[in-house]
Design a protein around this nucleic acid. Structure first.
Length: 794
DNA sequence: ACCGTATTCAGCGCG
DNA sequence: TGAATACGGT
């Protein structure tokens, strides 16, 4: 039982077995943080602590799930199940449902997601007759969100002179009014947005001391993961909950704080000592993930930040290879270079596609990468795209379910009242909305008795509304007696939704139909009690109703694996999305001034430091090898813009870098990488460069560029750049290809560096052929023929 | 009510 | 550039 401790290093052990009193674990990148948290919880349980009295808060569902599974392995499923572990939002939404009526909410309140919130804001802005360009729903949402995360109610917001001044200066004086109406409408709809889940928890704990006391005594041990990303609202909740027992353990890494832009407060971790003078601090500094080079590079990056806790990350791992720095002339070419590099590395080191990740600063950069990967037939998966639960058809069915559970849910009602079409048009809906607002009631109330609320509509519309209301009521009756799946299935069919999709025979329509089936499958699983509760597993085994299913559906994010079952794909994602993940080979692309660091941050030291931490996060995702690339021109908002390499590259210890600048695009894509493991070659890039200049066909060659550290390109992108590079690539490819087109198994060949060998296997179709060659000196190698320059010896 | 065209906008995104 | 949405014509 206890021997899991033996697998830990000294600081890890200390952090794991210290359980009383306030403590902070500063966990460097790749330092085994998750192991420490999970072992610590297991250790608590093994020492007689009731799992019900342990609260562990994470930032993502994924992290919670992962840790819970690990704990299960150590202490068993039964015990692990009783643990309170989940995201802030899921844990406190659960508590809010239990205590809802104290705040005047029903237990079955709806959780509005960002789209619901923005849609509500949009209608409020419209109703107030405000200019939608002046009050963009997204910006208004962010402003309100920031206020809530700083525990500013709409009243406080409007009473705060400084805020009012700010809003007037930014020509948005009505923000406070919008905030007020927004909250009223949420309440009217029995709904809370994401920020309300935390804000209202604070209200609950502030106004109901007995409730607070109950949870203070319940949660004797509190742990918070990713503490550097907590905002003020979360900070106050944690502080209050831990105030009685003070068994509070926070885990984080100030160097990886990358969410200040949405309210996370790095001061929470930097100031933790002030809150708890007798705080114990543990530092996990040994990195188990990355090579020495990567750790050294990362340390040299973060050393440029002023605000940081002292920490020395080191590793016993191998030295590893230097970080390649690749330059392309365009964003498209950057994609080609990266894709080629992945292809080669995969072949040369027999790596899986899933060993690679391409990380970028902005989502817009994914397009060039995708195109290049597709051209080379490299399978990939984009993370952070449209999630399952954000698809229209899924939201439609869920909206019916939401309305069934909570008739006051206005956003759900607006979504489905005329979809599928039932002749209730915009005019009618507008009238109902106005009447609801005037009478301070919900649309549901109004549409049931439009005459009473003096809505001026004809009998036809009244009948249709009546039919709709009756249908929703019949759904509710079924939802109260049958399982979640049976109710969901009934709703999908009787609402006409399924039929609507079934009749659409286009590929998209078929896919939507399948998605609905998929959602129903999920409901079925849930109904059969196969699904673990997000926070704590209920012990009861009674019927699982639709209302149970709907409880945290808004809080779910799908981390589903690809449906085709093939997860052996290159991962593409933003650096933000990559946090917490690791890959053997990591490509960080678009490392250019004004992109990374982003143009919007370079005038603020704090924001620039956050960008630098983001870069630190990116580099530390790599286990074996990191590669950095940038382009000297790229399309921004439709315009070809000149770019130069990022200051962040210059900040990396020069010993860690290996500049691999081709002289032109053709060489970069075809000739330059022909020695597959060139990066370990002693030749250095300068010689290499000279060797290759003769291959180049591009007009942009610059033969004078031989300095050790390449100068920053003063580069004005020529017109038709893309076309020219493409033509150059083609030429290069043909030159290479002719040598090996007729290569056959059994041929003797000579390679420039590996010497003489015999061809054993040829795979693939020209020009993408791969050969296994047994070299007399160098042994067996896998080479890509279009890159490897082989001489056939007959 | 619906569809095609014009216009607009573009930062990262947990829950 | 290209996706999302607003608008205007039928």
């Amino acid at each position: 039982m206890q021997n899991f401790l033996e697998t830990l290093n000294h600081p890890q052990q200390q952090a794991t077995t210290t359980v009383k009193g306030p403590m902070m674990i500063i966990a460097g990148a790749g330092s085994g943080k998750t192991r420490v948290i999970t072992y610590r919880i297991a250790y608590l349980m093994q020492n007689g602590v009731d799992p019900f009295s342990i609260l562990a808060l994470t930032f993502t569902n994924k992290a919670a799930k992962e840790m819970k599974e690990r704990i299960e392995h150590i202490v068993g499923a039964d015990k692990a199940r009783s643990l309170w572990m989940g995201t802030f939002h899921s844990v406190f939404s659960k508590i809010l449902r239990i205590e809802a009526e104290k705040l005047g909410f029903p237990t079955n309140f709806t959780i509005y997601d960002t789209d619901d919130s923005k849609s509500l804001l949009k209608s409020i802005i419209k109703e107030l007759g405000l200019d939608e360009k002046q009050y963009k729903p997204g910006l208004v949402y962010n402003r309100i969100s920031a206020a809530k995360n700083n525990l500013l109610s709409w009243k406080a917001y409007n009473a705060n002179e400084e805020i009012q001044r700010e809003d007037k200066l930014s020509v948005k004086p009505q923000l406070g009014t919008i905030y007020k109406i927004y909250q009223q409408r949420l309440f009217q709809s029995s709904a809370m947005d994401f920020d309300d889940l935390l804000f209202n928890t604070n209200i609950l704990f502030r106004d109901f001391p007995d409730v607070l006391l109950k949870y203070q005594h319940k949660f004797k041990y509190v742990m918070v993961d990713e503490y550097q990303d907590t905002n003020f609202s979360q900070y106050v909740i944690v502080k209050k909950l831990a105030a009685v027992n003070e068994n509070i353990c926070v885990v984080g890494d100030d160097a990886q704080s990358i969410y200040a832009f949405r309210g996370a407060n790095i001061q929470n971790i930097l100031n933790f000592k002030k809150d708890y003078p007798d705080l114990k601090v543990f530092k996990l500094e040994q990195n188990y993930r990355s090579t020495k080079i990567i750790v050294k590079a990362a340390n040299s990056i973060i050393a440029n930040n002023k605000a940081q806790l002292k920490k020395e990350v080191w590793t016993q791992n191998d030295e590893g290879e230097k970080i390649d720095v690749l330059r392309a002339f365009t964003d498209n070419e950057e994609g080609q270079i990266v894709a080629s590099s992945i292809f080669e590395t995969k072949m040369n080191e027999t790596a899986q596609h899933s060993a690679f990740a391409i990380l970028y600063r902005t989502n817009a950069q994914s397009r060039a990468m995708e195109e290049a990967l597709r051209k080379q037939n490299i399978p990939y998966r984009i993370y952070g795209g449209l999630s399952f639960y954000k698809r229209k058809e899924i939201k439609d069915l869920l909206a019916y379910c939401r309305l069934t559970i909570n008739h006051n849910d206005e956003e759900a009602l607006k979504r489905v009242i005329n979809y599928p079409g039932r002749g209730i048009g915009d005019a009618t809906i507008d009238k109902i909305m106005v009447a609801a607002a005037n009478n301070n009631t919900s649309m549901w109330e109004v549409l049931q008795q439009p005459a009473y609320y003096q809505v001026n509509i004809n009998q036809g519309a009244i009948n249709k509304l009546n039919d709709f209301a009756e249908m929703i009521k019949s759904f509710a009756a079924i939802a109260n007696t049958q399982t979640a799946f049976d109710a969901g299935n009934h709703i999908a069919m009787q609402s006409g939704l399924l039929k609507e999709l079934y009749n659409d025979k286009s590929p998209e329509g078929v896919s939507r139909y399948e998605n609905i089936q998929e959602l129903l499958n999920g409901m079925k699983e849930f109904s059969e009690n196969d699904v673990q509760d997000l926070v704590v597993q209920e012990v009861e085994t009674q019927t699982r109703f639709l209302k149970d299913y709907m409880q945290d559906i808004a809080l779910l994010t799908d981390d589903l694996d690809d449906k085709d079952g093939d997860n052996n794909k290159v991962s593409l994602m933003t650096i933000h999305a990559a946090k917490g993940l690791e890959f053997p080979y990591v490509y960080i692309v678009g490392v250019e001034e004004n992109l990374f660091p982003s143009q919007l941050t370079i005038n603020s030291l704090d924001e620039l430091e956050e960008e630098r931490r983001l870069f630190y996060v990116a580099v530390t995702r790599a286990e074996k090898r990191a590669t950095i690339s940038f382009a000297t021109s790229r399309y921004k908002w439709g315009n070809l813009t000149a770019c130069e390499q990022s200051r962040f590259i210059d900040e990396i210890d020069a010993d860690c870098l290996n500049y691999k600048f081709g002289n032109n695009s053709a060489a970069a894509n075809n000739g330059f990488f022909d020695d597959l493991d060139f990066s370990s070659s002693k030749e250095g890039w300068g010689n290499k460069y000279k060797q290759r200049t003769d291959i180049g066909t591009s007009k942009f060659s610059n033969a004078n560029q031989t300095a050790k550290t390449p100068p920053k390109p003063a580069f004005a992108p020529p017109k038709n750049l893309t076309k020219l590079s493409t033509a150059a690539n083609k030429t290069g490819s043909e030159i290479q290809g002719d040598d090996t087109r007729n290569l056959a198994v059994g041929n003797n060949v000579e390679h420039q560096r590996f010497g003489i060998g015999i061809v054993e296997v040829i795979e693939g179709i020209y020009p993408n052929q791969k050969a296994t060659i047994n070299f007399t000196e160098a042994g067996q190698k896998q080479l890509i023929l279009k890159f490897a320059k082989l001489k056939i010896l007959g």
